[in-house]
Design a protein around this nucleic acid. Structure first.
Lengths: 67, 67
DNA sequence: CCTCCATGTGATATATGTTTCACTTCGAAG
DNA sequence: CTTCGAAGTGAAACATATATCACATGGAGG
């Protein structure tokens, strides 16, 4: 049920601010904040857009855990 | 903008009905219908659940085209 | 301490994915 | 032609992702 994400790790490693990543994927800064803090499941498009920015696979960036 | 998907191909190859796939990923049959016909972007969770059923990567199953 | 900037929060509004239900279409088989 | 099961359609209700806005927090440096 819970979503684990590495967006923050990849973003910081890439030297990007939340606002810069948001602009790259055509989303709002607050949306990135919520995502990094696991507030909700993104749409497939948003997830793939972010994965593309970091040149990683969606599965590298997101994982759903049971419990 | 447009979503291309191979859900139908993989599903038929696996010998599954839409209703069976739906049950496996805890969704409704109509949701699978809409997805296979590119009606909307699924949630990341649904996309990953389907990819897991077929043992493929999300990127193998879905692709967003420009135009 | 004060300022600036990046990050986080919360509430509300809007967009859209998903469900539900009732119905239709279509092919295969009797 | 009739029946039956699988697939498709459309509209309305509902759930939730995303946008918007205003404000709070926290660290770095003056």
């Amino acid at each position: 049920m819970a979503l684990k994400t590495k967006v923050k790790e990849y973003r910081e490693q890439a030297g990007l601010k939340q606002s810069e990543l948001a602009e790259l994927v055509h989303a709002r800064r607050e949306t990135i904040v919520h995502l990094e803090n696991g507030k909700y499941n993104p749409s497939l498009k948003l997830a793939m857009d972010i994965a593309k920015v970091f040149h990683v696979r969606v599965e590298d960036l997101f994982a759903f855990t049971d419990e």
